[in-house]
Structures are given as structure tokens and as C-alpha cells.
Write a protein that binds this DNA or RNA. Structure first.
Length: 694
DNA sequence: GCTCCTTGGGTTTTT
DNA sequence: CCCAAGGAGC
């Protein structure tokens, strides 16, 4: 895309002061608009250190920063983008809160989802809730309440039909919310939501601090604006101040995170909230061939609300997308893998230009198997996040606790990991004693001899833990060993490798988990090398602490080495990506739209809203899938599928049926080659029906 | 306190 | 079917 900007793009890039909404359709070059706009601002004399661009993912932030720097270099600007802030909402919030914590000498930890869930489970038990609540549903509701509460009443958008949503989950969440907050503060912890909410709250009460922040933010740009939640809106509103030099870029047709608290109203009502805002519509698509866009437009035109957009391209020609009917998921997987092998081996297409997209992670398995059988190399994006994995969290907890013995959440993690005889009973006793005597938990462990009612096994365990922490502390703080080195010593002391072997069911799993730990050590080493190159001291306690905390917000950046592999991803995970060849699989009623959007359960975040808006969001998800394809799109669905052990007949997704017939080519999957006779036979409908007994 | 077995439940998850 | 969480037994 080294071509000239189109008029709409140019007007967005050239717009100077005041609010602006850029409605950027899929593939319309929005990243280019943001990066060139930043460049223009700098060229106009706005210091780079007064420009802030906020994104949702680290990846997006990194890419954007790199692109700006590249452009500045190309344009021959000395100093380039030095001082420019491109960051995620959460890192930005973390930086703000860290500065504050430093000033007040009150270090904090970050609660991730796992910590949150564990805390809420504990609270549910102590609350004697009377019935079994789904803890993660309660977490969601607390999170929503929190994000809404960070917003002052006059700008909040309260749901008018709040009466109806007052179900028992709201009741329990409301009851638990204050206790949850109190517990967080007792742990001196912030959860992910706090990284945004607490900043908004801080600025609401401390105009001086807001002014300070604003002095580094004269121009503000936001990517993926449709995914902002009320707290993020409030943060932006405050940061934009009276100048309102706020440029938001997004696409309401790609809003797929409402279940995470994102409020599409932010993008729909921008012009009301920022009167006089310039609105730019980017509808020219540079990604896909016409026939793909025709399907995309057909799908999204059926939506019930939102900004009206219609994508077009100046490219001509191209094949119509294919709607593929398969007998079963196995047949579907066999067909897709076979086609991909053909693309890669016969047509010499690059695997990285091919993707299989699905609604939920469980669908990946069948495709992994067939791709492996066809000898096609692939990667599965998503799944459990690296820094959420137990073994990784355990090691981090040891390191964090070593640095900060008030970090009780980390202490609770490691207290009996590996098992050293300190079970629930002993821990409870320790906590109670600490509470009674006004000690913290660690002090209770140090004074274990003065506490009665503790088993001898637990006593020995406490001594062991004490020694372990003391040794690690000496490594880190006295010997000033690098984090990688002291972590390695720690791993040896607890014999982590052996621990993983006994804990994991198979050696295969144990090896993988150990591999994760090795990756973590590599991350430490990377930091140490970087600091050494900059002539800085990697053993600096505060810096190491900050680093360990920031890791919680990060992904495994190991996995992003650009291997040439086929991508398997959920539709959510595929947002922002594009491929020449896209296989949108499992497009059946119950999967996409997912049955839980049509068949609502009480534990859902907001049951009535989901029932009405849920289908729209599923439609957008389908739209996101369609618009990932540049050249070839295959939409597949199965006639039969085994669900929960029971075979069931399946109907195609309503979104597929809604596509006008003449926009697609309808086909039945016929698998040829690369597959055995028996497999062929098993795939035939007749036999299948017989096996299923229908 | 730890391990094994039963039982229940089953999207998506940028941070 | 396949996994995770809670309960019983060691």
C-alpha cells in the first residue's frame, strides 16, 4: 500500500484539532491512517512526547510504533518519533499507577484472571451463598459493575431496563463487590480492570494529576474504539480534556467483545458525546476481492443497529466464495486439510497465507489431526496465555514474593507449591493467627513455632519455605544475581523438573511445561541482555519488580517468530489478521450463532441484553471471519455432528442461509486422495447414518 | 494432606 | 466425549 491516500483517508490524516471519529471498515487501511496522522502531527510541530496512541493489544501497539518510526525515518525526520507513546490501555494505566505507587511508596501486585477467580471462589464459600454460583460469571458481573462505576453518573449510560436484569447473579455480585474490593486492597493488588478504572478515578479526584498527565498528551489517538468499555471512555474523556484532540478509529461492525464489557455505544454515540466531531467514513477496501466483499456486505446489511457502511473495491474479478456442505466434522477436516495440502504442495502457496477460522477452541482438534496427517505445518493461536500457565505463574510468584514479602497473593501461591505439607487447614490457621495478632501472613510463617494447632508436617514445611525464600533473597538482593540465575537456582532447590514430572500425567506434558519454564528464563535473560547493552543494572530491585508485574500484561512473544505455517484461530483471535485463503468452518446453528446466545442462561453477564443483542454480535463475528479473506473464502458446515457424546443432525448457520444464492457457489465436500479407503467409507453419509442409528 | 474417582458441565478471553 | 472440580478414602 505505497499508493496515495484516498480522499477519505487523507482528510482523516490532515484533520488537526478537535474530536474525530474514523469509521474504518474492514481492510480500509485504518492503521495506515493512524500512523500517517501521527507523522503529520509531528510534522506540524507537535512534539512526539505530547502524542499518545492507545490500543488494546501489545501486538497492535508494537506494530503501530514500528510503523510510525519507519515512516519518520523514511521521511528523513531526525529524532523521528522519539518520546511518542504507543501503548495499550492497560500498560498506560499501569505506568500511571506505578508512578503514583512509587511516590507514595506503596508497591502493588496485579491480579490476573486466575487470581480474581480464586478470590471470588473464596468469597463465595465464606458468603455461604446457599447455592452453587458460577464463580466466573460472578467475576464478570463484578467487572462490569466496576467498569460502570468508574464513570460519573452524568456521562454514564445506565441501561434503562436495569430492573429486569436484577437477577440472583446481580444480587450476589453486588453483595460480594465491596468485599472483593476490600480483599484486593488488603492484598495491595489491582486487577486488570483497576488499571483503567483506578486511573480514571484518580484523575476525577486529583485534577493536578490529570493536568500532569495531559501535559504529555495534547493529541490522543485510539485504535479499535468499538471495543472500549465505559471506564476506558471515561479515561479518554478526562485525558482529552477541553481541547478534545481525540481521534478514535474503529468499526462498529467488528464489535465482538461486548461480553467482556465493551460498549458499542461508545462508537455509536461519539458524535453526541463530542459535538462537532469530524466524522470520516472509510469504505474502500484494499484487502479482498469483490465477491468476498459482496458476501461481507450481504451479511452485515442484515444487522439491526449501527453506522451504515458498505465496503467496495476497485479490484475487478475473482471467484465467488464457496459454501461447502460436509457430512461430518471429520469429513470437513479431511476436506479442508486436503485442499490446504493441494494449495501448499501443488500450487506452491505459502502456508502463512492460509487460515482455518472457527467459533470455539474445541473445534481446532479435528483440523490439527488432519493437517498433521497431510504433513502441513500449522500453528494454533490462542489457548491459554503463556503467563497464565501454572508453572510460569508459580516461578513468577516466587520471584515476586522474594522481592516483596507483603505480596500475600504470591505467597499463597507458593506456600504449598511444591507440596510441603501446608494444606488448607494449616494455611487457615496461619491466616487466623496473623489476623488475631496483627501480623501479615509471612510473619506468621516466620513465627510458626509460637503457633499451636499446626501439624508437624506443616511446621517442617514452613521452615523449608522460609529457608527457600531466604536463599533466593540472598541470591537476588545480596549477591545481586540476575533474575535468570536466581530463578534457576530456585528451580534446582525445589527440583521443579522432577516436580513437574510427578505432577503431569505424561512425560510429554511434563516436557512441555518444563519448556515453558525455560521460555520464562529466556525472557529474563532477554531483559538482562537488553539492560546490559544499555549499561543499566539488571539487579535493580525496583526495576525488576516493575518488570515482573508488567509480565502479567504480556503475551508469550516467543510464539511470534514468523514461521511459515497455516494459522488455526478462533474468530475472536483472528480480528486484525488477513489471509489469501480462509476456511470459515463449522458454520452451523448452535455454533455460529452459538447456542448460548440463542438459549440464555441465568449466569450470563446480562441475560436479557444477550438475548436481544447476542445474535447481532454473532453476526459481526461471522462478518469478521468473512472479511479476513483476501482471495479465496470457503464457508463450511456439517450435516451431522456428535455433541456431548450424542450424534445430532445439524442445520447451516442462519448467516449462511441469509446470503443471496447468486453470491456463492454451493458445493458438497468430496474428499479425494491423501486418505485411505476405509476413511473414505467412514465418511460416506449412508454408513454414518447407520452408525448413528437414525 | 494427598490421590483417586465420581460427577457435572460444556463460547469467545485483546489485558 | 473430555476436562475440571469436589468428595471419599488412604
Amino acid at each position: 500500500m505505497a499508493f496515495a491516500l484516498n480522499p477519505a483517508q487523507a482528510s482523516a490524516v490532515e484533520h488537526f484539532r478537535g474530536p474525530m471519529l474514523v469509521l474504518a471498515g474492514a481492510g480500509s487501511g485504518k492503521t495506515r491512517v493512524i500512523t500517517e496522522r501521527i507523522q503529520r502531527l509531528i510534522e506540524r510541530g507537535i512534539p512526539a512526547n505530547q502524542i499518545v496512541a492507545l490500543t488494546f493489544t501489545n501486538k497492535a501497539a508494537k506494530e503501530m510504533h514500528e510503523r510510525v518510526e519507519l515512516r519518520m525515518k523514511e521521511a528523513g525526520h531526525r529524532g523521528g518519533a522519539q518520546g511518542l507513546t504507543v501503548s495499550t490501555f492497560h500498560s498506560y494505566g499501569l505506568a500511571t499507577l506505578s508512578a503514583r505507587a512509587r511516590a507514595e511508596k506503596r508497591p502493588f501486585t496485579i491480579f490476573d484472571q486466575g487470581d480474581q477467580l480464586a478470590l471470588v471462589k473464596e468469597l463465595l464459600v465464606s458468603e455461604k451463598a446457599g447455592r452453587a454460583f458460577d464463580a466466573s460469571a460472578v467475576v464478570s458481573r463484578i467487572s462490569n459493575m466496576k467498569n460502570a462505576r468508574a464513570t460519573p453518573a452524568d456521562v454514564a449510560l445506565p441501561s434503562e431496563d436495569a430492573v429486569e436484569s436484577a437477577d440472583e447473579y446481580d444480587a450476589i455480585a453486588e453483595r460480594l463487590y465491596p468485599r472483593y474490593e476490600k480483599a484486593l486492597r488488603n492484598f495491595s493488588a489491582y486487577d486488570f480492570d483497576d488499571l483503567v478504572c483506578e486511573v480514571a478515578r484518580l484523575w476525577q479526584t486529583r485534577p493536578d494529576l490529570l493536568e500532569e498527565a495531559r501535559s504529555h498528551c495534547r493529541f490522543l489517538l485510539v485504535d479499535e474504539y468499538q471495543d472500549t468499555n465505559p471506564a476506558q471512555f471515561e479515561l479518554l474523556r478526562l485525558l482529552a480534556g477541553d481541547d478534545k484532540n481525540l481521534c478514535v478509529v474503529g468499526d462498529d461492525d467488528q464489535a465482538i467483545y461486548s461480553w467482556r464489557g465493551a460498549d458499542v455505544k461508545n462508537i455509536l454515540q461519539f458524535e453526541t458525546q463530542f459535538p462537532g466531531a469530524k466524522v470520516v467514513l472509510l469504505e474502500e477496501n484494499y484487502r479482498s476481492i469483490g465477491p468476498v466483499l459482496d458476501v461481507a456486505n450481504a451479511v452485515i446489511s442484515k444487522k439491526s443497529v449501527g453506522h451504515k457502511k458498505s465496503l467496495f473495491t476497485s479490484k475487478v474479478g475473482g471467484e465467488k466464495p464457496v459454501v461447502m456442505t460436509c457430512s461430518t466434522p471429520d469429513a470437513e477436516a479431511a476436506w479442508v486439510a486436503n485442499r490446504i495440502r493441494g494449495l501448499v504442495q501443488d500450487e506452491k502457496k505459502r502456508p502463512r497465507e492460509i487460515a482455518i477460522l472457527y467459533r470455539s477452541n474445541g473445534q481446532a482438534k479435528a483440523f490439527e489431526e488432519t493437517l498433521r496427517a497431510e504433513g502441513v505445518s500449522y500453528r494454533v493461536v490462542g489457548g491459554q496465555q503463556f503467563f497464565e500457565r501454572k508453572e510460569v505463574k508459580d516461578v513468577l510468584a516466587y520471584m515476586k514474593f522474594t522481592l516483596n514479602r507483603l505480596d500475600e497473593i504470591s505467597l499463597r501461591r507458593i506456600v504449598n507449591t511444591p507440596a510441603r505439607g501446608i494444606g488448607d487447614q494449616s494455611l487457615d490457621r496461619l491466616v487466623q493467627t496473623a489476623l488475631a495478632k496483627g501480623w501479615n501472613l509471612w510473619e506468621a510463617i516466620e513465627r510458626i513455632d509460637s503457633i499451636d494447632g499446626i501439624s508437624s508436617a506443616a511446621r517442617t514445611g514452613c521452615k523449608e519455605l522460609e529457608r527457600l525464600v531466604a536463599e533466593t533473597r540472598r541470591d537476588l538482593l545480596v549477591e545481586r544475581a540476575h533474575a535468570s540465575v536466581s530463578a534457576e537456582r530456585l528451580l534446582q532447590r525445589v527440583d521443579m523438573k522432577k516436580e513437574l514430572e510427578t505432577q503431569s500425567g505424561s512425560t510429554h506434558v511434563a516436557t512441555r511445561r518444563w519448556g515453558n519454564i525455560v521460555s520464562l528464563l529466556a525472557t529474563f535473560k532477554k531483559r538482562e541482555a537488553k539492560l546490559a547493552a544499555a549499561g543499566k543494572d539488571a539487579a535493580n530491585e525496583r526495576d525488576l519488580g516493575n518488570f515482573l508485574h508488567a509480565l502479567t500484561l504480556q503475551h508469550d512473544d516467543e510464539a511470534e517468530d514468523p514461521k511459515d505455517q497455516v494459522t488455526l484461530s478462533t474468530l475472536h483471535g483472528a480480528k486484525g489478521l488477513e489471509f489469501d485463503y480462509v476456511f470459515l468452518v463449522g458454520c452451523e446453528e448452535g455454533i455460529l450463532p452459538h447456542s448460548r446466545t440463542t438459549d440464555v442462561k441465568a449466569s450470563d453477564i446480562d441475560s436479557h441484553t444477550i438475548a436481544t443483542d447476542g445474535i447481532d454480535e454473532e453476526r459481526r463475528l461471522f462478518y469478521v471471519g468473512v472479511t479476513r479473506a483476501r482471495k479465496e473464502l470457503v464457508i463450511s458446515h456439517c450435516k451431522h455432528r456428535v455433541l456431548r457424546g450424542k450424534p445430532a443432525p445439524r442445520t447451516p448457520s442462519r448467516f449462511v442461509l441469509e446470503i443471496p444464492e447468486d453470491l456463492v457457489t454451493q458445493t458438497e465436500a468430496k474428499v479425494t486422495g491423501g486418505i485411505s479407503q476405509e476413511e473414505m467409507a467412514a465418511l460416506s453419509d449412508g454408513l454414518l447414518a447407520a452408525l448413528m442409528g437414525d
